[in-house]
Design a protein around this nucleic acid. Structure first.
Lengths: 422, 422
DNA sequence: ACAGTTTCCCGTAAATGC
DNA sequence: TGCATTTACGGGAAACTG
């Protein structure tokens, strides 16, 4: 009869961070025959939780009781919106319930909402309850928490199976790939195409990916590390999603980022192309990195591939990616630097593709010469930059006369002591 | 008899930020003849404050009572260390005490510590109290708060004149310049020399600076804006101090930053120097910026000065300043770019001065070509970069097939509603 | 020693108050 | 409306805790 709406991280519902406010809304879907008194709703966190089920316990710090109100003029429903704050209970006497088996982001919780009223002598109890929730304490746990929310909602219709991750079911690749693409379309505005999903499938499953019924375990999806890498499949994929959201949105939405291509496929695609043809690919070795690979011909006519060191969020926040592509230069032993990027695969002239996305630069702070950063790769051929021998330089300026003044001052801020006692 | 030490921001004592823990320490300086019971100390914020004196009221959220302990084995003093947290009282019924006259960073507060014990039938009350404190709610108020702490402690020896900023005294330039230099030596490791202080004095006082007895008002120092600028003298100076602390420490400590030089002086110094001689100067027009100015000769032999657009913390966190100096290039109309910086004023070869401070770059992530950002200025001569007409590019890649999938999914995370009702 | 987890708190952005 | 001040909270790092 009542319908709860769920808490919200920016775009990530069903995940609650302790100490950060979240809102919930409860609506009464039946119309009550004139209730002339106030209908109170009470929120409880983890009501009726079987003891020992979870290792952490939480409570609602803010008001947990509120009176329902008429929602709006059109439907006349009663509803109430809470603004809650969650805090962890300090484990009284050392014992955390359920030890160790599950990670915090696999531990499921719930919010309950209750109301009670009497009508014509009849007492009616209303109660409803949220979908399973994940409680985190730091945004660094958000990717893990979101993986849990996705897995749960993908694989069960049960409204409240809090033991789900005690023995989580597998997902077929067909189910999972759909959700992954949906992540990209929801959070980055464009989903994944067949080729991109195939690459992801092979990465996760090896050659079985061709078979859509092949199953992926929860562990493989988000818990165990990719062989040889210090992160799991989902951590890797989510880091890319974050990179797109913050730094690559227009380029991604124009479909200029092939992104998920194996290195073999990359070479196959580029090898017969015009020299200077490049494509954009996400790093598989580091979290949240993007690189470009271009093809060129050696002096002896051989095909050669180059990739830059992947750009990560730090670099991209100093310089937008489109500008990097525009300005990238390779300098080889003192020769006039050259931008090797000419055509976006398959054959779009670079400026035709990215022209609209460049940032107009010259800032014109008047007395000054405008300056910008440009990305550059220096190819080693000879040692052109003679590194100077490290003679200790003499300080050229007049020596400061005030360096040692602090003792003369009447207060001693450095030591935090007050000046008038001792 | 007891001596309180004061709360502490990173290096900034006497400033407390609400919601952030601070520590205080109280020591008993007399040795008590065998006190065999526990000596309790109680902390009170703004004890005995004349009502209406301050506009905001605060209270200590954490434990305010603690038992003294023997400090260490050498001196046997009793002492106690508190870890406090301050919170603002919500003004009951709208009335804030003292309205508007003072800004929050001019409002002075205090912490009191009390203890009481009986010895040989004699009851003794001990009480001590901190120097005036400034309470802020955000680090953005730290510079203003620190200005107050400096001004107070520079100009009065009174231990507790909380009305100080009702009518703050002036400082002589001789006093003030000493404190300013001391700020730099304390927080950046090197103070200010005579030339730098002269420039600051002229900036603050005009030509009166030559007279050390000339007085500076509190308002001029930190409240009113520099004519034509949207910030006060101290805000400007503090922004530079922060810039040094975070991005220029080694360069500053090597005394390579002249920093505070008027543009006239700059030209006087550089005009007779070797072309390519440069000096480093802080921006006077923007907060927290540093620029370099170099001298060169025109084709017709005229002396010419150039300055880059000042680097601020954002740029400097993408690229360390020493590397900027090493790599800076001017590109003029397609010609091979050139680094115009040759000698640090007066005549130190650039690499001799900065060689040790360069960051060794090549990162060697193996399959990739290393890449770095370099700072570049493009001088307009002709229009060399033909901006492409913005034809809307055709998307070249296979169109995504999954873009519109989200409706088919069984849960609707985007709307935050639960999937199983409605 | 260490990994998983939480706490701490700066610094930016948004909200609030005046 | 604009300015002063506070709140909110992401994100990096330190502290905690088994």
């Amino acid at each position: 009869e009542k319908q709860p709406c769920m808490p919200t991280h920016p775009q990530k519902p069903l995940i609650i961070k302790t100490g950060v406010q979240f809102t919930t809304k409860v609506r009464l879907l039946v119309k009550l025959p004139e209730v002339d008194y106030q209908l109170k709703v009470k929120t409880t966190f983890d009501k009726d939780l079987p003891p020992g089920r979870v290792s952490r316990q939480f409570f609602i710090l803010t008001n947990n009781t509120k009176v329902m109100d008429i929602e709006d003029y059109s439907n006349g429903c009663l509803s109430v919106e809470f603004r809650h704050l969650l805090k962890e209970k300090k484990y009284i006497n050392g014992t955390k319930g359920n030890e160790g088996l599950l990670s915090v982001t696999e531990e499921l919780h719930s919010l309950s909402f209750e109301a009670c009223f009497t009508v014509q002598g009849l007492t009616i109890d209303l109660e409803t309850c949220s979908l399973p929730l994940v409680v985190i304490s730091n945004v660094s746990q958000l990717p893990g928490g979101w993986a849990s929310v996705m897995w749960y909602n993908l694989l069960t219709d049960e409204p409240r199976n809090l033991a789900f991750f005690g023995n989580p079911p597998r997902a077929t690749w067909s189910q999972l790939s759909e959700v992954l693409s949906w992540q990209f379309s929801t959070f980055a505005g464009r989903g994944l195409n067949k080729e991109q999903l195939t690459m992801l499938g092979e990465k996760l499953l090896g050659q079985h990916a061709s078979c859509n019924d092949y199953q992926v375990s929860w562990s493989k999806f988000s818990k165990e590390n990719i062989p040889g890498k210090p992160f799991s499949f989902w951590m890797w994929l989510d880091s890319i999603l974050e990179l797109i959201k913050k730094h690559l949105l227009p380029v991604w939405n124009e479909n200029y980022i092939m992104g998920f291509v194996s290195k073999e496929m990359e070479r196959t695609l580029l090898k017969d192309r015009e020299p200077g043809t490049f494509l954009l690919r996400f790093s598989e070795s580091h979290l949240g990195g993007i690189t470009f690979t271009w093809v060129e011909h050696n002096d002896n006519g051989e095909v050669k591939f180059n990739s830059v060191e992947p750009y990560t969020k730090n670099r991209l926040s100093a310089l937008p990616f489109a500008d990097i592509i525009r300005d990238y230069k390779v300098i080889s032993d003192g020769v006039v630097p050259e931008n090797p990027l000419k055509f976006l695969y398959p054959d779009i002239p670079k400026n035709e593709a990215f022209g609209r996305l460049y940032n107009s630069q010259p800032s014109k702070v008047h007395p000054y010469i405008a300056s910008t950063l440009i990305p550059i790769s220096e190819l080693p051929n000879n040692t052109s930059s003679a590194s100077p021998s490290c003679q200790s330089p003499e300080p050229p300026m007049t020596p400061g006369e005030f360096d040692m003044l602090s003792e003369q001052l009447c207060f001693d801020i450095d030591n935090m002591s007050s000046p008038y006692s001792e």
